[in-house]
Amino acid sequence: MRIAEVAEEYGISADTLRYYERIGLLPRVHRNTSGIRDYDEDDCMRVSFIKCMRGANVSIEALIEYMQLFEQGDATLEARKQILIEQRDAARERLERIQAGLDRLDYKIAHYDELLAGHGGSVPQCSKSN
């Protein structure tokens, strides 16, 4: 497949695909006799995997390390698993911060509900626990 076809198939720009190749997320994609990139099935599977992991908020740096380990074979299974665990833990931390922010917003909205119901108010507060 040509780069434009892969870009359309996976919803990724051609520039992003070139970037992924340049930074090592994708191995050098084979080029035809005219010098045009010709993505094979393995390349497309990698693009799909990268898109999936980016959708899970795995960092580019972690993905680069993961893909380098992948190229080394099954001897790196534990190291690859550890990268995924670290990325999962980072995602959980982000989720906890987001949830705390949502909780503060819910508290503030409830405060405004009280104000609008005529129960008055005092000095603005962010939340009970700030």
Rank of each mutant, 00 (worst) to 15 (best):
residue 79 A to L: 03
residue 83 I to V: 06
residue 10 Y to G: 02
residue 70 F to D: 04
residue 43 D to E: 01
residue 122 S to N: 11
residue 39 Y to F: 14
residue 66 Y to R: 07
residue 56 A to M: 10
residue 58 V to S: 05
residue 35 G to N: 08
residue 60 I to C: 10
residue 52 C to E: 13
residue 66 Y to G: 10
residue 121 G to T: 12
residue 128 K to F: 06
residue 84 L to V: 07
residue 97 R to W: 09
residue 64 I to V: 15
residue 77 L to M: 08
residue 22 R to F: 10
residue 102 L to Q: 12
residue 59 S to G: 10
residue 117 A to R: 13
residue 90 A to C: 00
residue 129 S to M: 00
residue 86 E to W: 03
residue 72 Q to V: 09
residue 117 A to K: 13
residue 59 S to I: 04
residue 11 G to H: 04
residue 80 R to G: 05
residue 49 F to C: 00
residue 68 Q to C: 02
residue 104 R to W: 10
residue 120 G to D: 10
residue 49 F to E: 03
residue 83 I to L: 05
residue 117 A to W: 08
residue 112 Y to A: 09
residue 119 H to K: 15
residue 35 G to Y: 06
residue 7 A to K: 03
residue 43 D to V: 02
residue 47 V to C: 01
residue 100 A to K: 12
residue 129 S to A: 02
residue 130 N to S: 12
residue 3 I to M: 07
residue 93 E to C: 02
residue 68 Q to P: 02
residue 73 G to C: 08
residue 81 K to S: 13
residue 60 I to L: 15
residue 94 R to H: 11
residue 22 R to A: 15
residue 20 Y to Q: 01
residue 31 R to N: 07
residue 55 G to L: 06
residue 68 Q to V: 01
residue 118 G to P: 07
residue 108 K to T: 08
residue 20 Y to E: 02
residue 123 V to Y: 13
residue 107 Y to D: 01
residue 15 D to M: 04
residue 117 A to E: 12
residue 48 S to R: 13
residue 8 E to V: 11
residue 63 L to S: 02
residue 28 R to A: 14
residue 119 H to G: 15
residue 112 Y to L: 12
residue 61 E to K: 06
residue 113 D to M: 03
residue 37 R to G: 05
residue 57 N to G: 07
residue 34 S to M: 03
residue 109 I to C: 08
residue 130 N to F: 08
residue 11 G to S: 03
residue 107 Y to Q: 01
residue 103 D to K: 04
residue 128 K to Q: 11
residue 51 K to N: 12
residue 18 R to F: 07
residue 109 I to Y: 07
residue 32 N to G: 12
residue 121 G to W: 13
residue 103 D to I: 01
residue 69 L to Y: 09
residue 71 E to A: 14
residue 57 N to Y: 11
residue 7 A to Q: 05
residue 110 A to K: 13
residue 40 D to I: 02
residue 33 T to D: 09
residue 8 E to T: 14
residue 39 Y to C: 06
residue 49 F to K: 00
residue 43 D to R: 00
residue 82 Q to C: 08
residue 41 E to R: 08
residue 48 S to H: 11
residue 81 K to T: 14
residue 130 N to L: 09
residue 33 T to L: 01
residue 98 I to A: 12
residue 74 D to F: 05
residue 51 K to H: 09
residue 21 E to F: 03
residue 23 I to C: 04
residue 32 N to T: 06
residue 38 D to K: 09
residue 84 L to F: 07
residue 53 M to F: 12
residue 90 A to S: 03
residue 23 I to Y: 04
residue 13 S to M: 06
residue 78 E to T: 06
residue 73 G to N: 08
residue 60 I to R: 09
residue 68 Q to M: 02
residue 8 E to Y: 08
residue 57 N to K: 11
residue 76 T to S: 11
residue 100 A to E: 14
residue 63 L to D: 03
residue 102 L to M: 13
residue 92 R to E: 02
residue 110 A to D: 15
residue 17 L to A: 06
residue 41 E to A: 09
residue 61 E to W: 00
residue 37 R to Y: 04
residue 14 A to S: 15
residue 20 Y to W: 15
residue 101 G to S: 14
residue 70 F to S: 09
residue 116 L to D: 13
residue 32 N to E: 10
residue 55 G to M: 05
residue 81 K to Y: 14
residue 129 S to N: 04
residue 16 T to G: 03
residue 28 R to V: 11
residue 54 R to E: 01
residue 92 R to V: 06
residue 62 A to W: 01
residue 29 V to Q: 02
residue 78 E to N: 04
residue 109 I to A: 14
residue 92 R to Y: 00
residue 48 S to M: 07
residue 130 N to H: 09
residue 78 E to K: 05
